[in-house]
Design a protein around this nucleic acid. Structure first.
Lengths: 333, 333
DNA sequence: GAATATGTTGAGAGCGCTTTCAAGGAGGAG
DNA sequence: CTCCTCCTTGAAAGCGCTCTCAACATATTC
């Protein structure tokens, strides 16, 4: 069995260079090409990636670094779907992927591994506004695509969901279904997603002529924050007939607090979430929420990186993916 | 900035070979080593993996292939925890990991990618008894560690959970808490886990002098199967006071069927699951189940592969990890 | 002091591939 | 028929590293 280019060259009676050309699409005469292709077919040869990488400077391998999160339901689903999406795109282009589950603090380690010199580019999740890892990566000359984005990265390529538009749509849904006092329990304020959703929410309110100043209370995406925020609102005697929670998780907490207060969803208060996690449809009542195509984000980010590698000169890519408003009974009248 | 070994060699006034020795732990005199280390420190040199791989034949990168499953809750959690565990072990040994989310049918693609010649070894999930991918991999000369195992692979290295012992323990728990007619709704019969759990269950029954012949009904790990199996048992007029479901998912179905039949958990029927998914603790009543340390499986499998690579001669490794019986109210008297 | 063992070092030969360069052949223009 | 251009091809120079081998220096033994 032929293992190296030289073997193939000998078998097909041409030089190594010619075989290489056939494989990599160089200019070769039809009959020579055919001769080599014949041999290639019978021999199931596999080029040695390391050698190819060493000689050409590219490896066909991209890195993916994700910040390890606690294994909570959101993270698990996000993780698996994102990676699956990335893998989809990558394998369709015969590219490989190396994975690093980063620890946000271990910039050093990661920077090292990535500087290892065999990655063509990297995809990195970047939701939080401050992230030494992302900064380090972007400072290097490694092509990077961010999943999620940070306003500060003016010249970064990223793929994200349009949080602002999604939140606006949700707020409009609430308003058009007759709610006049919606409140937003926001996500982590140090995340772009949290901030953008709040911004979108506010804009929709303003557009509808509803005062937005006090309509946002700070949460952090946790169930507990959802619970406590609602408790707080009630204790303060605030009036509200709709709650747009930063994510499904905090909506869960909101449900609990409302139940304890004897308030009915959706009759007394409409509740909406964000993410469309599995349990959202199974709550009582089923939760209106926003579905982000996490798999699509993954696919798109890989595609974006690949295109960036193809043509590095053409500047950063910014992709904002649409979301889907999933209306269920929790906001029904 | 020094980029190659030769640069370093020049800077420290020794030969390239000596620098290589310092880096890779060869025998070098203390003062020479120090000289080189000094230079190394100021220069933050990163070896070129591709070159190293090409020259040495090893890459420090292992492959991980997982069969893509539908994004169901078990899969998501399993996926993320397993990968996190693997990553833990790997990075602690400065090894990298390439990921393939295989499609069971695409043996060809995967075989190709893996034959790419830059992987030191691979970890592959292998629960189903028949799997062309696993077969192809094992037929190659690539060191492989299976996560999960198949009885047929006599000489394979694997890491798995002791399903049989876990099931036995669960059955014993049921019996010692006074149940005399336990039924097992099994998992997929084409999976080792499903079969072993059933075997363990049967053995415990036999040991307790309970007839085991009809005590197992075939399921497939789905919620629907749990539901239908229980429906069927009731329709057949079968007597049972305990249900050990193949996994938490099917326990969910069992809960539903029991509720519809007006049977109370645990008073009329004890119910137990397997996996300890997130929702298990939140059911009403909370579900007794078996917790597998998926993260540990991942960590252990990476460790096993690394040790296999270290010393390939010493034969296959088989690791059976213990599980934890998590007793909750669903089996309380 | 000669002979041997032990330890440290540098030279150099690859690892399998890509890519440049120049040589050779074919075809077109004059 | 000659000159020039264009295309195909092979030779060969690396890519950056590891590792063998031989050379040399030093320590040990008799």
């Amino acid at each position: 069995m032929a293992r190296t280019l030289d073997d193939l060259a000998e078998l097909s009676g041409v030089s190594r260079a010619t075989v290489s050309r056939v494989i990599n699409g160089g200019s070769v005469s039809p009959q020579t090409r055919q001769k080599v292709l014949d041999v290639l077919e019978t021999t199931n040869y596999r080029p040695n990636l390391a050698a190819r990488n060493l000689a050409s400077g590219r490896s066909g391998v991209v890195g993916v670094v994700m910040h390890g999160g606690a294994p909570v339901s959101f993270w698990d689903a996000y993780f698996s779907q994102l990676l699956t999406g990335i893998c989809d795109s990558l394998t369709s282009q015969a590219a490989g992927m190396m994975l690093w589950l980063g620890d946000r603090t271990k910039e050093e380690t990661l920077d090292h591994i990535l500087g290892m010199g065999m990655l063509d580019g990297v995809i990195v999740t970047a939701d939080t506004i401050d992230d030494p890892l992302v900064d380090g990566l972007r400072a290097s000359d490694m092509p990077v695509v961010l999943v999620g984005h940070r306003r500060a990265d003016r010249d970064a390529s990223y793929v994200d969901v349009d949080h602002e538009a999604a939140a606006r749509a949700m707020a409009e849904h609430l308003i058009t279904s007759g709610r006049t006092n919606p409140i937003h329990i926001s996500g982590r304020p140090d995340s772009v997603s949290g901030r953008d959703r709040a911004i979108g929410f506010r804009k929709a309110l303003q557009r509808a002529g509803i005062p937005a100043e006090d309509a946002v209370v700070a949460g952090d995406y946790s169930e507990e924050a959802g619970y406590q925020s609602v408790k707080g609102l009630i204790a303060d005697g605030r009036r509200f007939d709709a709650l747009f929670c930063g994510n499904d998780n905090s909506a869960l907490g909101a449900y609990r607090a409302l139940a304890e207060a004897g308030l009915k969803v959706p009759d007394d208060v409409a509740v909406a979430g964000f993410d469309d996690l599995k349990f959202a449809a199974e709550l009582d009542p089923p939760l209106t929420t926003v579905r982000q195509g996490v798999g699509d984000i993954g696919r798109e980010s890989a595609r974006t990186l690949l295109s960036l590698l193809d043509d590095p000169e053409s500047g950063p890519r910014r992709v904002l993916l649409p979301t889907e408003l999933v209306v269920r009974r929790s906001t029904g009248s």
